[in-house]
Design a protein around this nucleic acid. Structure first.
Lengths: 339, 339
DNA sequence: TTGTAGGCGTTATCAC
DNA sequence: GTGATAACGCCTACAA
């Protein structure tokens, strides 16, 4: 690889002149401009970004940390494509690093991006607690933004969505329609989102003065297969139910498969609601309802805030986003209550 | 941020000693080890990777270029998660950069990663032609691997799948079952994969001595919505068909929705086959068949080859991968032939 | 308008 | 075992 020095020699000028021309800072005469550009062409010169970043102490790169178990979900797709587009519009690059499967590895991923001297880091945490995040943020100069979490001490660095509230509303929607035997399929319970959605369900039942029946709460793992297994166990246990709230659309899809196999239709026999509103979900069955998470809104806000932190400018402070209920059915419970 | 110099001063040694200790190369006495580690702790020192990479001319980073329009598909998910996992097992990081929406931007993305001094680049091209890729590869010292393309001059840098062959087989499967009116929904025709799948369909018909009927070939855009639109136009045109081959699963899902809405069941009334075998597809309907692309196999091979190029070792040369036909129905055409 | 020189934070090659 | 010292390739006062 040819260096700036070589270009300078070829053009008969100094490195400084070449640098000035390339960075657009400082004056360069038309004549030397031509000569330098030609030398660059001849040499096939390309700037070494490592050297440049080292010298300027900037990288024009934003890091993103997410666990690779998320890479399968369309929630992450949305996050990634939104972030990539917004950042590139802003002339920056996104660097994605795997947070793997523990709090320690998640922290290492953040550290790696910081060591790479990324201008900022966006974290979609899976294992690190809110307190850990808060502490990491205060230890570093670079901005670290946290998606899907309500931070305690660095509120402006976090952005979140009221999962409990949307789950509450979805449950209440079913209750309003007359459903009383509502099964709930949880996500992985080591995830705060899963816990919040479960608590929203419970809260809605309680608000209605209904008991929480543990046999109607089945543990899932976010995957279609675990959603299918959940409904199978429900059927096997012979527990009556007229509606299912699945903690994400993937599990709702798995649930629907088993319902169909059992000759139960949605929503005539069983009402089914998922969360996240993944792109293929509406195509599965017009009757599948879903709670749409405001991923794109959150990502937009995170990046806007980041840009204003880095480049200066207005800093908005909208931390809390709301889900949108997309309900495609409004069917009262049918005669079916268990096998 | 504290530097190595500061650590050295604190510990009362030279930078060289600290560097030796950290890199594990060269001898350091136990006593100084302790002193240095303590100084590192006190200073909260973190190595500057930019400086290190500049000095060593290595980055331990592998770049990946893909268009952001792909970020939505689960094909890309598979690619990304596979690549991230394999590379991290190998102690390297994956840097993802958007190839945007033109050949020029795709090339710029590659160039950016090269300028960042990534050890190698993996490209999942969407706009750059095979010849352009070949030429880019020969212009650079760093290995550049190309997924899903058969290169002309740098065969060992490309890895591909016989899309035409698998489309041929899927079509022949339908023909063998007695289908004669097979509709085909294409992908975006500016993508080589879309073209290959279409040509496999045509070839299978020709091999059987059947005419290619343009009214049965509908242009899609890879999305569920375009799959739905395709079937709607088919129904509106009143063209008889007993089977549909959709160029990917997303479009098959969209197609299925419209079929259901028209009171046509799969596969009793219409046989439906998709491509890629996305995770949710098998959950949609037990009857949806799909041709599974060997993404994970290809990614594995690409990365294995990359690692052996970079670290030395055995270099396998398996360029061509085959799809796997996953057929869930074997239903002969029913009485339905158009509206 | 241009060149000189020092610095960014490492690694690596020597002597000692 | 350890410490100067010169790279690595670029930026940026400051001087000319």
């Amino acid at each position: 690889m040819s260096t700036m020095k070589e270009v300078a020699m070829k053009a008969g000028v100094s490195k400084a002149t070449v640098s000035r021309l390339l960075s657009g800072k400082g004056y360069v005469s038309e004549a030397t401009k031509v000569a330098v550009y030609q030398a660059i062409e001849e040499a096939g010169y390309r700037p070494n970004l490592l050297a440049r970043n080292l010298a300027t102490n900037k990288s024009q790169c934003i890091g993103l940390v997410a666990t690779n178990t998320l890479y399968n979900g369309s929630y992450f797709n949305e996050l990634l494509s939104q972030a990539a587009k917004k950042l590139e519009d802003n002339g920056r690059q996104l660097i994605l690093v795997d947070g793997k499967h523990s709090a320690e590895e998640e922290q290492q991923a953040i550290q790696f991006l910081l060591d790479l001297r990324c201008d900022a880091v966006i974290v979609y945490p899976r294992f690190l607690t809110v307190d850990a995040m808060d502490s990491i943020i205060s230890q570093h100069k670079q901005p670290i933004m946290v998606v899907n979490r309500k931070l305690r001490s660095h509120q402006s660095h976090g952005i979140f969505c009221d999962h409990k509230g949307s789950s509450f509303q979805a449950t209440r929607h079913l209750l309003t329609q007359g459903h009383r035997d509502i099964a709930f399929i949880t996500g992985s319970l080591d995830s705060p989102t899963a816990i919040e959605r479960l608590s929203g369900y419970k809260a809605a039942l309680e608000a209605q003065g209904l008991p929480i029946r543990e046999q109607l709460i089945i543990k899932g793992k976010w995957t279609p297969a675990s959603g299918a297994a959940a409904v199978e166990s429900l059927l096997a246990a012979n527990t009556p139910f007229s509606a299912i709230l699945a903690s994400n659309d993937d599990m709702a899809i798995g649930a629907m498969k088993v319902l169909h196999a059992a000759k139960l239709s949605v929503p005539e026999d069983v009402s089914l609601i998922g969360f996240d509103n993944i792109p293929t979900a509406p195509f599965l069955q017009p009757a599948l309802s879903s709670v749409k998470d405001p991923v794109s809104g959150m990502v937009n806000e995170v990046i806007n805030r980041l840009i204003s932190m880095l480049d200066g400018g207005y800093l908005s402070q909208n931390n809390a986003f709301s889900s949108e209920l997309i309900l495609r059915d409004s069917v009262a419970p049918g005669p079916y209550f268990g096998q």
